[in-house]
Amino acid sequence: MASLGDLERSVMSLLWDSGQRLSANEVCEQLDEDLAVTTVLTVLSRLEKKGLVQRERTTRPHRYAATASREEHTVQMLNEVLGTVPDREAVLARFIGGVSECEAAALRKILSP
């Protein structure tokens, strides 16, 4: 049995790849794993709580879609790392950089054979 984290991953990639709003049943059918719809619903509501999935409540059954594309999430994540957002210190990520571009260019010159 896959862990909840793994299930979240597969559900998110399905939603990202399909790019449309899917109901829990459709998610369940399209996932390779043999899962109960209730499990999928649990995973979807966890993802909704994390702000990764949006639920459309006007239809029956409810349909779910990713709040942002895979690329948008990656960019957001890297912005935190590269310090283009104010929260940068909070992430405490240390990027190997910290070297200015001029210095890097000079370094490349020294190292080039």
């Binding site: 190997i96 950089g97 001029c102 890097a104 260019a105 370094l107 490349r108």
Partner: peptide
Amino acid sequence: LAVSSGSAEQESPRPGSD
């Protein structure tokens, strides 16, 4: 360090580089 710090576009020299 040189690779990960510098920009990928090495062919465009920056003003002020010596």
